[in-house]
Design a protein around this nucleic acid. Sequence first.
DNA 1: GTGAAAGCGCTAACAA
DNA 2: TTGTTAGCGCTTTCAC
Lengths: 328, 328
Amino acid sequence: MHNTTLKKISEILGISISTVSRALKHHPDISLKTRQKVIDLAEALDYEPNASAVQLRTRNSKLLGLMVPTISNYFYETFIAAVEEDARKQGYSVMILQSGNDPVIELENLKLFRQNRVSGVFACLSLSTTDMKGFERMRELDIPVVFFDNVPEEDGLHKICMADEKSAQLAAELILQQPYQSVLALFGNPQLSITKKREEALKLAFQSHPKIELLVEHAGNSEEAQNITHAMLDKHQPDIIFCMSDEILIGVLKTIQQRGLHYPDNIALLTISNGTIPKLFHPQITYIETSGEKLGRLAFSHMLNCINGNSEAKELLVDAVLVKGGSV
Amino acid sequence: MHNTTLKKISEILGISISTVSRALKHHPDISLKTRQKVIDLAEALDYEPNASAVQLRTRNSKLLGLMVPTISNYFYETFIAAVEEDARKQGYSVMILQSGNDPVIELENLKLFRQNRVSGVFACLSLSTTDMKGFERMRELDIPVVFFDNVPEEDGLHKICMADEKSAQLAAELILQQPYQSVLALFGNPQLSITKKREEALKLAFQSHPKIELLVEHAGNSEEAQNITHAMLDKHQPDIIFCMSDEILIGVLKTIQQRGLHYPDNIALLTISNGTIPKLFHPQITYIETSGEKLGRLAFSHMLNCINGNSEAKELLVDAVLVKGGSV
DNA sequence: GTGAAAGCGCTAACAA
DNA sequence: TTGTTAGCGCTTTCAC
């Protein structure tokens, strides 16, 4: 049991609780002598302030909420790692919750954040979120919410995204520079905001090149991507496959390997990715970077601004960068 | 601001705070009428109990600490995901902190756990931890600590590990079944408890087969593994490479691909892994499974026992399973 | 079946 | 420079 409290220290030293409290915070009012006595004794008794008591009294929790569909994901894990690291440096802790893409759990998690009186929330919407009540309640309570990755469509919210349109444009440019005649573009779940943005931008870029065949498909996970790729390769001869994400890429790679195909000779490959998977292969797969880490750092610094009231709601973008490999 | 409190509800209803408190917990003393009135009003006013106040009063935090070197890791992310999921189902939240393999941060993190009065801690030691004071303090405070992955050597602690010895034995068995004459075994940082256990067990298994050449090397990360593999392949002709972990495997795979080698024809491959990386390749790489998820679930259920005082300190093992691929 | 009161550990306004 | 006091929101014992 934690049994060293301000009261105990004050009793031993024969001074008041408030003096002890002040001394421990290096309040200038307190004489050096007293201060030192208090600090020494606190040290000796392993005093450790009760965070709940402090938070109850000050209404300032130094706790941030972070919700993702799942922690176990190439992208989210780097996002979380970055946020946690920056938060720690600023004296914040992070309460990380998974929604499992279940709107009911999402709602419960938001409630948990509220009950813990978090100072702010980072949230990636679950796939099937339609009811935004949980988030609206956050707004009522003046708890800033910074959305990332899969974000709501409404304006007037804090959103941190990668430059989805630009990344798709970059991909299109790279493809159009080459003499490819047929392009297979594989996207993720069409409900996701990132899917919509990337898909629209890619299609737009190809509109002025009607001679090039653009085959667009959607896959909810790696396995689906794998199957769809097989099916498409049975019917078509795309020169290049564009993957919207690592998850898609994984499925595509399996199919390619299963069929004994080699990139870039038999077919070219281009993806949007965190970088982990593309670098596992040789030649390295060319990708447009989505850095969970950069996104996380930006999200955290924006959160800090929100908490300090210095930020109107806006969408911030992490720039898209092409990382050349040997697959195009 | 959260402004609905028990007090407010009690004032509106003209009853006492304690009655409100009881009604909200479905205390049998309270009449159905009163109870319903209270519950309805609480609902209408979006009452959400202040977790800090509850914890301050009850000294029961429903909060668990979890510390890893980094969240962004194939193994830890699955461990964390499993713990978080099970914890949520039992009404616990998890405070996840990264040590970055820095003993100083590790100590600070433990302090943070204490200040937040967590009910228990899951900890994977940082690489260079020598000072166990932070953990001893946990013991003094009766806060159970469940170690996992990289665990201390001392007895009398709660440890959740995979069956490291057995996994190395399984690997050795599989290798010895084949006509391999030379084996390159790559291990991680020799300070890690898992490295020591796996290495010793593997060496032991080969002692009775002195004719087989066993080359043992250590690499601190993927890049080192990549370089070492190059160097070893320059000098030797191993028939098979055994990798202690995904991190090592990644480096080895790069070298193999760079050299245009193919498994299992030119060289065989065997690894201990979570499964993610081995399944990315075709043929799939044969591996002995370390399931972060299984470890996490076991760790959590053991933690629950510890919290309820039903558990003496012991080391629990997750069994090693061979997952056959096409690389041996 | 309900209320009064004490107190968890801390901070901060006000007094001295 | 230090102490007194009130109170954050909640639970729980004891009394009625």
